[in-house]
Design a protein around this nucleic acid. Structure first.
Length: 391
RNA sequence: GACUCGGUAGCUCAGCCGGUAGAGCAUCUGACUUUUAAUCAGAGGGUCGCGGGUUCGAGCCCCGCCCGAGUCACCA
């Protein structure tokens, strides 16, 4: 084919050479630091972010169809809460107050429920001032949704429906390849935390369910201060990494769950579950504690833990307790980590591969000024090809 | 924070026993005119992550540091 060009217009300058086409850009540091090059050179990177958008759109569509109102709550909070994590601190000059970047939107979304918005959701960033790993970025995206007049069992069913459909919308089916495993999102297996400890106990001599409820047995197998914390500790060490297929783990110890409602038949446990897949926690849900007096006691328990040196213990949130005093209906609430879910549905093993611009250590001087000056110093005839070719 | 691995041209990488820094692609120039990474010829392109040390001589050996990845710890 021959093109008879009558005019040629340059749209933009390109001053640095692009990565090679055949191998693409493989250096992971460059891929993260200069994501624009990664997107240009590696089509599969672009595809990951297209899929990420489909995942979020699917969740939005499904929640909207069920009557959830999408809202936005503060990212800058005078009191941080809703999770156990160290926060980032910033300062507002005019008000002269320190504010925390939120570690979770939970307490505001439940204030919303108190106000009569019975179904509400939020998809946005949380910030946690903690380690960076293949599963942790300091800012990450969380879907949280709250539904009045349901409980954690209702949320188990809802979670199953949401995840099955989001897998279909993102990948075309419910079977997803991840790290050598085929994950089946058509159903969620349900196990109690104690059942999981028993099932994945490493020795042939498995503990009985009575053992796993026995404070002495728990104390023997963990150095944590309370039976509940010990159970959580043992579960994480024994079972968590084996939870490859999407699984619901339920019945959590009350010590680990200051915002969850206690089980009717066992006050040591709360009506809470987490969703695991590929050995990762991707969701967390519970029947919300809606008794203001009990909530105040739980916060006080957290304050004691803080005084004993637990940096991640919950702060007292007086206004939240005040809100509960106006009555929060029985409510179920859930959070799903969008980044980790995207990892699973796109086959990426690092959270950095599903966050467009992940957090990295500062790069230091780039030294581009000299390069640009050198290019400018070149003779105009070489640097600027003729424009306006006549055919 | 600990351990392991890595950092050489724009990109992907090689570099032996310590002896003049290489290839392919990309870029530029010329030729060619058959689109599906890869036609031919030629040219330009390097603070071998940074700093010290050993040595006649260090990309290579030693020490320190920086950056990254992975594993572990942490992240209930």
């Amino acid at each position: 084919m021959t093109v008879h060009a009558q005019q040629l217009e340059f749209l933009s300058k390109i001053l640095l050479s692009l990565p090679e086409k055949w191998h693409g850009l493989e250096d992971v540091e460059t891929r993260y630091r200069q994501r624009y090059l990664d997107l240009i050179a590696n089509p599969e990177t672009r595809e990951t972010f297209v899929t990420r958008a489909r995942i979020i759109a699917s969740l939005r569509r499904q929640l909207e169809a069920r009557g959830f109102l999408e809202v936005e709550t503060p990212m800058m909070q005078p009191v941080y809460g809703g999770a156990a994590a160290r926060p980032f601190v910033t300062h507002h000059n005019t008000l002269d107050v320190d504010l925390y970047l939120r570690i979770a939107p939970e307490l505001y979304l439940k204030r919303m429920v108190v106000g009569g918005i019975d179904r509400g959701s939020e998809i946005n960033r949380n910030f946690r001032n903690e380690g960076i790993s293949t599963q942790h970025n300091p800012e990450f995206t969380m879907l949280e949704f709250y539904q009045a007049y349901t409980d954690y069992e209702g949320l188990m069913d809802l979670s199953e429906e949401l995840l099955r459909q989001v897998a279909i919308d993102a990948t075309g089916g419910t079977a997803v390849e991840f790290n050598g495993h085929t994950l089946d999102f058509s159903t969620l297996r349900r196990l109690t935390m104690r059942e999981a400890v028993q099932e994945y106990w490493p020795d042939a001599a498995k503990p009985s369910m009575e053992d796993i409820s026995n404070p002495e047995w728990l104390a023997r197998h963990s150095d944590k201060g309370s039976p509940g914390e010990a159970l959580g500790d043992i579960f994480e060490r024994v079972a968590e990494r084996h939870l490859i297929q999407p699984t619901i783990i339920y019945e959590y110890p009350v010590e680990l769950s200051p915002l969850s409602k206690q089980s009717v038949d066992n006050p040591a446990m709360v009506d809470r579950f987490e969703i695991y897949a590929a050995g990762m926690e991707i969701g967390n849900a519970y029947t919300e504690l809606n008794d203001p007096q009990e909530q105040r006691r739980r916060f006080e328990m957290q304050l004691e833990m803080k005084q004993r040196g637990d940096e991640e213990a919950h702060q007292m949130d007086e206004d939240y307790v005040r809100a509960l005093c106006y009555a929060m209906p029985p409510t179920g609430g859930e959070g799903i980590g969008i980044d980790r879910l995207t990892m699973l549905l796109t086959g990426n093993r690092s959270i950095r591969d599903v966050i467009l611009f992940p957090q990295l250590r500062p790069e230091g001087a780039i030294g581009l000024a000299r390069t640009l000056r050198a290019l400018e110093a070149e003779p105009a005839g070489e640097a600027e090809p003729a424009v306006g070719l006549e055919g």
